[in-house]
């Protein structure tokens, strides 16, 4: 099929699929970021069991393959009488995995802060929360713009998991496999989806490096 043929027949669906991918990406990333911050707080708090729990969480979700997690959520959890809709399962999987990486980035962002700064803050009599809010968090965020940009792209790539469950509306990957099993979309059908993914990734990357240049701390 030619590009114009495909677009006239499936154009609306491609737009819908692109929006679905964007929506999944945005929701997952926002949730993953919030969860990542929370986990990071657990990992640096002075209470040992919580630190260990935070580390454990990160190791589990950093190392589990997306397909394995999704299959557990969709097919195995119902045996425990825990049943989520397909969309919720996908969202959980695409949130938990990036949240672990988010926490890792935040931890390494924090490690870029020179120990002297913490000592100086303490010498000036800043309270713990003042120190966290005024010194640690701003610097950790500013030095993690690029890793977070990459994480957003990675989150987008992870949302292709949605194609593994019969979810409606379909995402970009799901749509292509749908088109190719119902008609012969051939290479073109893939090329359109790939182009849309790439354009999104480039847009994210461009915006990210723009922000990074504005806020990066030169050392």
């Amino acid at each position: 099929m030619s590009v114009s043929n495909l677009l006239s027949q499936y154009g609306d669906r491609y737009i819908q699929a692109l929006l679905t991918t964007w929506k999944l990406t945005a929701f997952s990333f926002a949730a993953a970021f919030a969860l990542g911050v929370l986990i990071t707080i657990l990992r640096v708090c002075p209470i040992k069991p919580l630190r260990i729990a935070g580390d454990f969480y990160v190791q589990v979700f950093r190392n589990i393959p997306g397909a394995a997690l999704l299959i557990l959520l969709v097919y195995a959890l119902p045996y425990l009488k825990i049943i989520f809709s397909y969309e919720v399962c996908v969202l959980i999987a695409t949130t938990l995995i990036p949240s672990a990486f988010c926490s890792e980035h935040l931890m390494s962002g924090m490690n870029t802060i020179a120990p002297g700064q913490i000592e100086a803050a303490r010498a000036l009599g800043l309270t713990f929360f003042q120190m966290i809010r005024r010194i640690v968090i701003p610097q950790a965020l500013r030095s993690t713009v690029l890793p977070m940009t990459n994480l957003l792209v990675a989150t987008m790539l992870t949302t292709s998991l949605a194609s593994q469950v019969p979810m409606r509306p379909m995402d970009l990957t799901g749509l292509v496999s749908y088109i190719n099993t119902h008609a012969t979309g051939g290479v073109t059908a893939f090329a359109i989806s790939a182009a849309l993914y790439c354009a999104t990734a480039l847009l994210i990357g461009f915006t990210g490096s723009l922000i990074d240049r504005k806020v990066r701390i030169l050392r």
Partner: peptide
């Protein structure tokens, strides 16, 4: 490089599964 970094693995897998045999 940008292309392979911006496209999910699953899309490549479906490509090899559905289109390459064709």
């Amino acid at each position: 490089i940008e292309f392979t970094r911006g496209v999910p693995t699953l899309l490549f897998i479906y490509f090899f599964f559905l289109v390459v045999p064709q």
